[in-house]
Computed example of a mutant assay.
Amino acid sequence: MTPFGLRLRALREAHGVSQAALAAALHVSPAYLSALEHGHRGRPSPGLIHQVNEYFGLIWDDAEEMARLARISHPRVVVDTSGLSPEATALANRLAQEIGRLRPEAIAALMRVLDGG
């Protein structure tokens, strides 16, 4: 599941809206919406993000948060390490191999390091 998919599902459930009903309102298929929520589809388009924001009445910070979540929700990331150090390339490859086995605490710790904390 992606950050955008998780938030979309939470909004949908908090408002008591089924996937089928939301898909119809957004003019997408229920299968696409399900794939988006489960992280099997790439980032949603800016137009779809706008539709979601309008449907749920999200404005200002909440609407910006949905756009931010969409930007960081591509489920198939490519890391280009050309021109970087051998250590950076090794790190990228190791992360690609191990990310599925990392515990949530380890992921949170890595995020803090990347955030400069």
Rank of each mutant, 00 (worst) to 15 (best):
G39D: 11
L22T: 03
P30V: 03
E37N: 13
P46I: 00
A35M: 14
E13S: 08
P46N: 08
A24G: 02
R12S: 10
L22W: 08
L26H: 12
A20E: 15
H27V: 11
L26S: 03
G39C: 11
A20K: 13
L26D: 14
A10R: 13
S18K: 08
G39I: 05
H15S: 12
S29M: 06
L8A: 14
E37S: 14
E37D: 12
A35V: 00
L22P: 07
A31M: 12
L8H: 11
R41T: 01
L11A: 07
L36V: 14
A35Y: 10
V17W: 09
A10G: 11
R9F: 10
A10F: 03
E13Y: 01
P44D: 06
A23W: 10
L26I: 15
H40K: 12
G16F: 10
Q19I: 14
R43D: 00
E37P: 06
L8G: 15
S34V: 05
G47M: 05
H38E: 15
G16E: 05
L48C: 11
Y32L: 05
E13R: 11
H38M: 14
A31G: 13
G47A: 09
G16W: 10
S18P: 01
L36K: 02
H15T: 09
S29F: 03
P30L: 01
G47I: 04
E13V: 07
R41W: 01
G47H: 04
V28F: 02
A35G: 11
L48M: 15
S34H: 09
L11N: 04
L36H: 00
P30T: 03
H15Y: 06
H15E: 11
G16A: 08
V28Y: 11
P46L: 06
Y32V: 03
L36A: 08
A31F: 01
A10L: 04
R9H: 09
G47R: 09
E13W: 01
R41C: 01
S29K: 02
A23V: 12
L33N: 10
H40F: 02
L8W: 03
A25F: 04
A21G: 10
L36N: 02
L26N: 11
A35P: 01
A21H: 11
V28L: 12
E13K: 09
R7A: 13
A35S: 14
H15V: 05
R41Y: 00
L22S: 08
L26V: 15
Y32D: 10
P30I: 06
V17K: 10
L26Q: 14
S45F: 00
V28M: 11
G47P: 06
Q19A: 14
S18I: 04
G39S: 10
E37G: 13
A25T: 06
P44K: 00
G42K: 05
G39P: 02
H15N: 12
A25M: 05
P44S: 10
G42H: 00
E37Y: 14
P44M: 03
A20R: 15
Y32N: 08
A20L: 09
H38W: 02
R9Y: 04
S29R: 01
H15W: 07
A23P: 04
R41F: 03
A24T: 13
V17Q: 11
G16P: 09
L33G: 02
A23M: 06
S18A: 12
